[in-house]
């Protein structure tokens, strides 16, 4: 049995997704860097980061998009497809930090072959807004 996919017709604009937490240890940063073939020292070499006046090694900003997509798809289900993901980076994240992914349904619309659900998504580091974006999901009808 596969997980169910949300029915766009039943979704209300403004309804929120469950909050998801993503933590970043140095091991997580190394794993992400290796998985994306990105060996930039900023993500694992503390001496390199501190020489550039950063408090610790830094999460790759592109990882914010991966976290937003993971959050959206865990909620939407296996037949949902991310058609567009647009995000702005507002703050840096360092090893030892955790991000909370929040999102709500911003728009639901009908297209001939499928439904489209637009989520307004945010990543927060405690009270600090770290990234914000929109995710356009194509959903089966």
């Amino acid at each position: 049995m596969i997980a169910s996919t949300r029915n766009a017709e039943t979704l209300q604009v403004g309804s929120t997704l469950p909050v998801m937490t993503q933590s970043f240890t140095i091991a997580d940063l190394v794993a992400y860097g290796a998985a994306t073939w990105d060996w930039h020292r900023m993500h694992y070499d503390q001496e390199f980061a501190r020489a550039r006046k950063f408090p610790n090694v830094m999460v790759d900003g592109q990882c914010y998009g991966a976290v937003m997509a993971k959050h959206a798809l865990a909620w939407a289900g296996p037949r949902a497809f991310v058609r567009r993901l647009k995000f702005r980076m507002l703050a840096m994240t360092f090893a030892g930090d955790s991000l909370q992914a929040e999102a709500e349904v911003a728009e639901v619309r009908d297209e001939p072959a499928h439904a489209v659900v637009v989520l307004a998504s945010r990543l927060k580091n405690g009270a600090k807004l770290t990234a914000e974006g929109t995710i356009e999901l194509r959903m089966p009808k």
């Binding site: 994306t36 990105d38 930039h40 998009g65 991966a66 997509a69 296996p78």
Partner: peptide, 30 residues
């Protein structure tokens, strides 16, 4: 779920440097 096989997480293709083929520069980046 309707796919021909397992699939990649959506942002993998735009985040990976797997297309690159060079030794790391002084920052480690490829």
């Amino acid at each position: 779920a309707g796919y021909p096989s397992l699939i990649a997480p959506p942002t993998l293709v735009v985040e990976t440097c797997q297309y690159a083929h060079r030794r790391p520069d002084e920052t480690g980046y490829i």
